[in-house]
Amino acid sequence: MITLNNLKFYFPKGKRVFDDVTLSFVAGNIYGLFGKNGEGKSTLMRIMSGLLFPKSGQCRVFDEDISKRTVSCLQNVFIVPEEFELNGLKITTYEQVNSVFYPKFSKDQFYELIAEFELSKDQKISTLSFGQKKKVLIAFGIATNTKLLLMDEPTNGLDIPSKSQFRKIMASVADEQRCIVISTHQVRDLHSLINHVVILNQCNIAFDYSLSKVSNHLWFGKPTQGPQESIIYAEPSFTGKSVLIREDREESEVDLELLFNAVLNNSDAINNVLKNTYHDHAV
């Protein structure tokens, strides 16, 4: 559905951001895109929405080169950027002037989400806080019903109740037809929402697996028994949390933060374990 083939990207006079990246995103999933600051999460989002063009390689969205920004392609893509400003219109006017360009836009869904986010449709956007503007844009993005929804740090600027509200809403709008990619460095905000993890590190994809595969092969927690060689990564902290090869242990909850640190520490070890298909067949 969305494929990045041998993608290379660098900024003029800047460091290389992507070096021969090949990756694909499939409908029906909510992807969590993680990486350290400056690893290119936002850049990848911009490439996938056609705002930046790869220096070589291709980004194809629904069999079309997104960098051509054709109408048919853009009608299926919506991006919620990390930093943005909306035109100072009333929410209703904002919806009227922008929704007409998206054929699958649902007005009812938009105003339901606006109400759910405790906003009034008659409010003027210029009087809203950044977090509230973000809610308007998230609601609009969801209501466009595009096949690809890209969200760059969507929880930045949202208060604590709004973050859980966001997770609830996102879980309710995910379906088999839609691919949602959420980029963040606040991994805890996406806990229980995403079902696939992509981690960027050193200009490449360091990790690209579904959470079901992760929980099938890896075990997260404080090891109390078992051979020490099954430990892949251990936090050098008081809690002593570790990532272990699951083997015959009970399934554990995936600790995204621990997984992220483990991948950055030794991605080869993690990837080698996940290539093993024993549990995929056994479970």
């Binding site: 911009r46 929405s49 056609g50 705002l51 920004r69 054709t70 109408v71 048919s72 853009l74 009608q75 893509v77 919506f78 991006i79 950027p81 930093e83 943005f84 400003e85 909306l86 035109n87 922008n98 360009f101 998206y102």
Partner: peptide
């Protein structure tokens, strides 16, 4: 406008 142009350029208009 760096804060507005994402939305402007991704609007489905040729």
């Amino acid at each position: 406008d760096q804060k507005k142009n994402h939305l402007y350029l991704t609007l489905p208009i040729s």
